[in-house]
Amino acid sequence: MHWLHLALAVVFEIAVALSAGKAQGFTRPAWTTATLVSGGVATYLLSRALLTFDVGVGYALWTSVAGVGIVVLGAGLFGQRLGWRKLLGIAAVIAGVVGLQLSGAA
């Protein structure tokens, strides 16, 4: 259940990044509201996940997987280039998540 909470928290954190980008320094009310609402939902789901995960581990997983999601979504939806630098970062995050899981730390 905690992995599901974490995964959903990641989805809403990606929504935070996308809407914060469109809020243009929080000058646009609709996107600012979207940022705050998705941030609230993401925070609640993260807090549920952290009932099981260690805080440092759960937080790092959440922010990093969301970071990967933002870049992958940027490439898929907005046609941003996915060069070797980004792929290297994505590979490191995946390796770290798998390593944490295999070492039993997550």
């Binding site: 790092a60 990967v68 290297l88 970062g89 490191a92 995050v93 390796a95 770290g96 730390a105």
Partner: peptide, 15 residues
């Protein structure tokens, strides 16, 4: 493993 993950996401933001 946390260091690997964090380095990965910092690198990703820079890229």
């Amino acid at each position: 493993w946390l260091a690997v993950i964090i380095a990965g996401v910092v690198w990703l933001k820079l890229a």
